[in-house]
Amino acid sequence: MSASRRSLFPVAMTALVLLFLYIPILVLILYSFNDGRFSVRWDHASLKWYRRLLHERAIWHALRNSLLIAVTATLTSTVLGTTAALALHRYRSRLQKVHYGLVYAPLVVPDILAGMSLLLLFVACGVQLGMSTIYLAHVSFCVSYVTMVVLARLQDFDVSVIEAANDLGANTWQATRYVLLPLLLPGIVAGGLLAFTLSLDDFVITFFVSGPGSTTLPLYIYSMIRHGNPPLINALSTLLIAVTFLAVWGSQRLLAKQRKDG
């Protein structure tokens, strides 16, 4: 195939799209090092806003809440999602058809509907809004994501390994515990990581079901955007972006290493 038959248009569009995706982020990072009181006028480089950030106790409290909810919601939704995926993969009954619909539906419902309906349920049942309601809400949307990730892994799975284990005398429990789960672990971990990041980043659903004293990091950032100090948000955002990039870089390194070893 000759190069002359390829158009340059898609390449140019891709470059523009990538530029479009990154420019706001780069501008934000740049401004976070700006000393000026009005973040948009550049004065000179400084780490002032980062130092100020360290002394903002409410941020650390919000971060603690976010992590607490993310860890507990991830653990619960990983267990629920894995059992759901095993059931969906193993059985072909009418019950599983309904089950699949039930797991799939939350993925297509906009956040605002999920948040509002949970709020109405909690209010109708007289449940006090707070950390526990946020936890319940987060598990509810994470389960579907974990299930889909684990299910995808199961569909690539070689069933003959389980049959071999059974032939060698393992009962169902042993085959599941010592053969299936270890082989499934990468899928379970991937699902759990997805749940963790979704929980950590969720704003809309949390906004509806949070109560006094349960401010999470996204809720805090939102109130800062509405009423707060822009340079401080720039600094906090830059730190969050740095964490994301480090996580991506780290996981890529790990993957590359695994590929080399395997």
Binding site: A87, Q96, A105, S117, L120, S140
Partner: peptide, 22 residues
């Protein structure tokens, strides 16, 4: 099958289907 299905099924009925109906 019921043992594997019940946890996610129950959770989603209580915290997804019921609130939507509400």
């Amino acid at each position: 099958e019921i043992l594997l299905t019940a946890p996610s099924f129950g959770w989603l009925v209580v915290l997804f289907v019921v609130p939507t109906l509400v």
